[in-house]
Design a protein around this nucleic acid. Structure first.
Length: 440
RNA sequence: CGGGGCGUGGCGCAGCCUGGUAGCGCGCGUGUUUUGGGUACACGAGGCCGCCGGUUCGAGUCCGGCCGCCCCGACCA
């Protein structure tokens, strides 16, 4: 992308409504703009990040055996009356009446729709288990949206739903999803801690929330250092396979036997038993929540399959949510400095920015164009007619993992400067070596 | 929903108490200058002062109502 012809409205001054770092930086770096309270438009750079996070989430869901579908945003009230949640959900649900006076709603979650889909088509125990997910916009009319995209009213969520024949199967599926989540967060460059949670309005009795560590997080968390040491993406004996029940059990024990709690549930007696050198404390942001809720929906909505003996069996369900749009903000909270965002390589909107410090200088222009041709869509070429200082500031603000700096002095000598955003290391080298280090 | 605050060129703000021709900084445009970490100067464009009503000779300023946004609390991905 050429910055001179792009819609990347960066701003120098902080808009007064933005109080927290991620919100401020998302506005300043031109990632999003607010349309109304808790509702945002995603601009080119922000949208790229959103899609990158979505991609990682999708890959890990697929790897765990979940199948992607797409359910509608608008749902009939009727289904929610069946499950008994229509009246209970309250004002958070955006209710709509269509031209025929039918009651509809903009879905805040999809248990009812998925259960309806399931009961229409799945008839035998032999078709179980099933894990289905989609990545789609939700609307919850929060009383007080805040923190930019971290708590919007409209937000992008990956929500998955599982159907198992019995409790034992449901537990395996639950652990599978938990592993998928830990792998996802690791790939996003985040340190995540799973914590036992109340199941809330969705209902059920086994539930974990995933807190990612960020210095500006909302809640204080206490956890065992073990969580920072585990490599969820690891292979071999130390790794975990989604398909191996023993692995999943070992994994689940690691997740539940090590101490982890938010300040509200902090148990000082148990905390004291954790080896002193392994006690970790920090701030955290909730980015995911998984539930086992048994037959709450399958029962109320009459979803059954034929069991081995031909008699109807009510499947055991679970649901698995991760806030995709919230993650954009959460990643920034976890990874930024005074100058701006520091994107993890896995989701950065661009791998590298090419900074042409002297536009119009033949050697600079030629070198930049050559680099840009090689990097293509992976690069943001700052070919604007701006001063060097502005280019450096914007590149830092936007947080590209690499900056390839091309100035007249270097260009004459066939050299460029390569800067790593995280850590700020700068080296002078040949364009070829720079491309190699960037990984092109 | 309870409590608090704020709406004035694109952004950040002053002006309001004490009514009398709408300002500052940044940004934007043109020109000159400068050029390796937000260059300097000059000129210029851009505002029904959130909306509606009231008081007044006269309202950004006073009064009433409404709308929007932000912060704290309860709730959530």
């Amino acid at each position: 992308m050429r910055l001179s012809h792009s819609f990347v409205p960066t701003i120098k001054e902080t808009p007064s409504e933005a109080q927290i770092a991620s919100h401020r930086l998302m506005l300043r770096a031109g990632l999003v703009r607010q349309t109304s309270a808790g509702i945002y438009a995603w601009l080119p750079v922000g949208f790229r990040v959103l899609k990158n996070i979505e991609r990682v989430v999708r890959e890990e869901q697929d790897a765990a055996g979940a199948q992607e579908i797409l359910m509608p945003t608008i749902q009939p009230a009727e289904l929610w009356r069946e499950s008994g949640r229509y009246d209970g959900y309250g004002k958070e649900m955006l209710r709509i009446v269509d031209r025929h006076d039918r009651e509809m709603l903009y879905g805040p979650t999809n248990e009812e729709v998925i259960t309806d889909l399931f009961r229409q088509s799945v008839k035998s125990y032999r078709e179980l288990p099933q894990i289905l997910y989609h990545i789609q916009w939700k609307f919850r009319d929060e009383v007080r949206p805040r923190f930019g995209v971290m708590r919007g009213r409209e937000f992008l969520m990956k929500d998955g739903y599982s159907f198992d024949l019995d409790y034992a199967g449901a537990v395996v599926t639950y652990r599978k999803m938990m592993l998928a989540y830990m792998r996802t967060f690791q790939r996003l460059g985040l340190k995540a801690i799973p914590m036992e949670a109340e199941s809330g309005p969705i209902g059920g009795d086994l539930s974990h929330e995933f807190i990612i560590l960020a210095p500006t997080g909302e809640s204080q968390v206490f956890y065992d250092a073990a969580f920072e040491e585990i490599d969820y993406l690891g292979q071999g004996a130390d790794g975990f396979s989604h398909d191996n029940v023993a692995d999943l059990e070992r994994f689940f024990k690691l997740m539940t036997n090590n101490y982890a709690a938010t300040d509200e549930k902090h148990d000082t007696a148990k905390w004291a038993q954790v080896d002193e050198g392994r006690r970790r404390e920090g701030r955290g942001i909730e980015v995911g929540h998984i539930f086992y809720f048994g037959t709450k929906y399958s029962k109320s909505m009459n979803a059954t399959v034929a069991g081995q003996d031909g008699k109807p069996v009510t499947p055991e369900m679970g649901s698995y949510g991760v806030g995709v749009s919230r993650l954009v903000g959460a990643v920034i909270e976890a990874s930024h400095d005074d100058a701006g965002i520091i994107w993890p390589d896995s989701i950065a909107p661009f791998k590298a920015a090419i900074l042409n410090l002297r536009r119009g200088d033949a050697a600079c222009d030629a070198l930049c164009e050559a680099l840009y041709a090689k990097l293509g869509a992976a690069a943001l070429y700052d070919d604007r007619d701006e001063r060097a200082g502005a280019k450096f500031a914007d590149a830092d603000l936007m947080g590209h993992p690499w900056q390839i700096i091309v100035g007249p002095r270097g260009a004459a000598a066939g050299k460029v400067e390569l800067k790593r955003r995280a850590g700020g290391e700068r080296v002078e080298l040949s364009p070829e070596d720079a491309l190699a280090r960037v990984g092109a």
